[in-house]
Design a binder for these strands. Sequence first.
DNA 1: TTATTGTGTTTAAAATATTGAACGCTCTAA
DNA 2: TTAGAGCGTTCAATATTTTAAACACAATAA
Lengths: 182, 182
Amino acid sequence: MEFDVGARLRAVRETHDLSQRALAKRAGVTNGTISLIEQNRVSPSVGSLRKVLEGIPMSLSDFFALQALPRQKVFFPAAELMEIGGGAISYRQVGRDLSERGLQVLHEHYRAGADTGRAFLRHQAEEAGVVIRGRLEVVVGDQRRILGPGDAYYFDSRLPHRFRNVGDEDCELVSACTPPSF
Amino acid sequence: MEFDVGARLRAVRETHDLSQRALAKRAGVTNGTISLIEQNRVSPSVGSLRKVLEGIPMSLSDFFALQALPRQKVFFPAAELMEIGGGAISYRQVGRDLSERGLQVLHEHYRAGADTGRAFLRHQAEEAGVVIRGRLEVVVGDQRRILGPGDAYYFDSRLPHRFRNVGDEDCELVSACTPPSF
DNA sequence: TTATTGTGTTTAAAATATTGAACGCTCTAA
DNA sequence: TTAGAGCGTTCAATATTTTAAACACAATAA
């Protein structure tokens, strides 16, 4: 509700690696103005705030939209991806708790010969993926195909499906499913 | 990029069937202030604009987003950037017509230095991806991070965001978005 | 040390926004 | 006609923001 213009401007400026003076020069205002705004010692006019943001550059809409959404965890270093499989098949999920989210993205690794077995029917789900490395056999309904690097699939998850690494080495792919299935 | 604060305020006020005086009373300012703002003879401070909008009521974010909506349609760069094998960024979409589908998966390739430009707010979308190769700078709202192989991201697409290949070589990633954004 | 360059902050003066009270106008009702 | 109420606009006085220039501090190099 309370919109902290000063703190928001400071955050935006710092993420763009600009000093108060550098931004002031690009925006056509003085550094003192930016200092005072960031301390909330003044409430800038819309006109001067727009000038300042043009030095970023960022629109007023984006500036005010930032605080409209809760700040979420966005970045997931490789080491932080959540390991789900662990055995011959490794599912590394982007994000931990997907209960509030609508998308599940997995970085998958199959050992040679690894097999999912038959997966279950799921309601209202769709999934797709791209093979990065190795050779993956994909069976969906009555169709079967072996996919290599760059090949992809997309199907309705209600169809019975199965994945198997039919190559000699590890198989790597990135897949997505909506809504999340587990 | 010109934002007509006065015309926008007048339009909003009139759609809520409020006179300048009625709105002024509810907002705790004088009618003259509203008159001057609507004529663009002054550029209101963020503080007083917020007070005025509280009399509607409307958030600053919504106020500025109103004019952002047509812009995001007009400047939405996806159609141009997604030419397969086209410019510095290649999007290879899994599936052809996604109009009936809920998931969009792309195998993306960025040339060194390639940049998406700033993307704008979208409706109710979520997106995530995993970097396969190269170094990708991701900016989401006021957050920024450089991701390498195996690193991932997940965010609400309504936040302004941007991608850039900051490495010396090509960058490859697989991304997913639900519902499809283009 | 000493000077230099870079931060962010502060302060009086200038520029701008806001107020409070008027003005001119168009209605409607007596 | 007349009075009254409502509308948006304008103007001088007041309040606030913005400027320009200085201040204080930290890091760096001579």
